[in-house]
Design a protein around this nucleic acid. Structure first.
Lengths: 114, 114
DNA sequence: CCTTCATTTCGCCATATACCGAAATGTCAA
DNA sequence: TTGACATTTCGGTATATGGCGAAATGAAGG
């Protein structure tokens, strides 16, 4: 329903696509994403809010961190289909591969201080 | 390859989505689209250029008109999958339905003068 | 070659978006 | 309650985008 272009707007940003591809590897907190994308915490937080409002991700608070998850079981057909595309083999890029490696390396207990 | 966000940017506009949904009904020229969207010819032309450069549509010149077609047989997996979503039953809206009606009614021989 | 007419390109303006740092918020543990 | 720390919200700025009208382009016919 509503405004379909809003869904595509959420995906129409290089950094937000990188975030979704990283969440494909595992759930992440803001500071882990900040470290990999090399952006300000506030900027990452904004991107996550946009992806969450569109239904592509959801959050679960855990201790002092907020973990963000890829919403693989979205009940919105369009969101679900879009996430399938983004997770498909064809949706690939050097940047995404490098980010995925970083996701395995980052440790929130070391890097998280503003 | 290249910049995946560019594909989503092309779809991240209300009027460009309306154009794709109208082309689902039948090929159209610039002035028919202008009439339905109520935009300037130059604006429609820009939107079509963006959709064409991303591979969602193609053009075939016919007499004095340029006809734009939905590129249903795109060889780019991602473009193909995105067009499938846009053509799916779930991708619906009152605006798209009204536009589709208009597409049946417009006659380029009557309305085309700048 | 000249005219006509659909379309595209250009220059400009208003709004939307991405980004940052600073301040506010929220949560946990001392 | 207070302090520490992850996150979000706020205010501001630079760039990107969508819109228009005018001028340029291109194709068809006289």
């Amino acid at each position: 329903m509503g405004n379909k272009s809003k869904l595509f707007k959420a995906l129409a940003d290089k950094n937000r696509l990188r975030i979704l591809k990283m969440l494909e590897v595992r759930p992440l907190c803001v500071c882990e994403i900040r470290e990999i994308l090399n952006l300000a915490n506030s900027t990452v937080s904004q991107h996550l809010a946009i992806l969450r409002k569109s239904g592509f991700i959801y959050e679960i608070k855990d201790n002092k961190w907020v973990n963000y998850y890829l919403n693989k079981r979205s009940t919105d057909d369009v969101v679900y289909a879009l996430l399938m595309i983004i997770q498909s083999k064809s949706f690939d890029d050097d940047v995404y591969r490098k980010d995925a490696e970083q996701v395995h390396l980052v440790d929130r207990n070391i890097l998280c201080r503003l």
